[in-house]
Computed example of a mutant assay.
Amino acid sequence: MLLHVNEPAELSKELLALNKPKGYLVTRSDDLGRKTVYELLPEWAFTEGWMPIGRLDLESKGLLLFTTNSKINHALTTPKNCIKVYEIWVRGHVSDEHIAEALNGVQSPHGLLKALKVEKISTGGAKTKLKVVIDEGKNRHIRRLFGALKDSKFGTPLKVLELSRISIGSFNLDIKSGEWRYLLKDEEKTLISHLHKT
């Protein structure tokens, strides 16, 4: 993102945001030669050690923050410390009972998986679009949470077909897929200050 000299907005030196498309691994390198998120960032992001804050799996997309500051990384990934919001498409009819189960939590080999909030946005055919809010991020948290629930009509597990992270804390995704930008200093301050209120 280019700023003109007369623009007052000051850029963060600590945080940058990427809108990750599907098909990119959140890792510095891959033995199988698959695409990584660093291919979408300038070369200096790799060489200067900008690290992703949290993860999005290969098939997931949306907001990914990077930092070189380990304290910020830790603060944003500590459970209960930071709200993350996702929009997902689920195969199957998501009922009020499913939503109640997701809010109460489901036991899994990875511990208790639960959502803070689940809101039904729309339905299309045998699919349901949801907005899901969580405050921790176990590996494949949302996919496993809904995969533990059964479609009442067919008895098959619900399956997350699409997953997109749209916000982390106070910062909302506002860039096109595959693009990145620095956070503004004000955005960084707001994001960090909100951590202490959650």
Rank of each mutant, 00 (worst) to 15 (best):
T77S: 11
T27K: 00
H93C: 13
P21F: 08
P52V: 04
L16R: 04
V118I: 14
L161R: 03
G125F: 03
Y38E: 11
N69E: 08
K120T: 14
D57W: 03
K153Y: 02
K84N: 05
D31Y: 04
V94T: 07
W50I: 10
N172G: 11
K197F: 11
F146G: 07
V94H: 08
L130K: 03
K129D: 00
L103H: 06
N73E: 13
I134C: 09
L65G: 12
H196A: 13
I99S: 08
E87W: 02
E7S: 12
N19W: 02
S167R: 07
P157I: 00
K176T: 12
H110W: 12
R144P: 07
G155F: 03
T78R: 15
R91A: 14
I166D: 05
E97H: 11
K153E: 14
W89S: 09
S95H: 01
L163D: 04
K22G: 10
I121A: 02
L183N: 05
L158W: 02
G169W: 01
E10L: 15
D151Y: 02
T36Q: 01
Y38V: 09
I175D: 06
S108C: 06
E136H: 11
S122M: 03
V118T: 14
G178H: 02
V94I: 08
I166H: 01
L58A: 07
G49A: 07
L58T: 01
K150W: 00
S193R: 13
L158M: 06
T156A: 10
E119Q: 10
D30C: 09
D96A: 15
T198I: 13
G92A: 09
S29D: 14
D57F: 06
T128Y: 09
K153D: 11
S108H: 08
K71C: 03
V26F: 04
F46V: 01
L191W: 09
N104T: 01
L112D: 00
Q107D: 14
K20V: 11
V106A: 09
P157V: 00
N73D: 12
L163M: 15
V90L: 04
T128S: 15
I168L: 13
T128K: 04
S12M: 08
L183D: 06
L113G: 13
L63W: 06
E39V: 03
I99H: 04
E97M: 05
L116V: 05
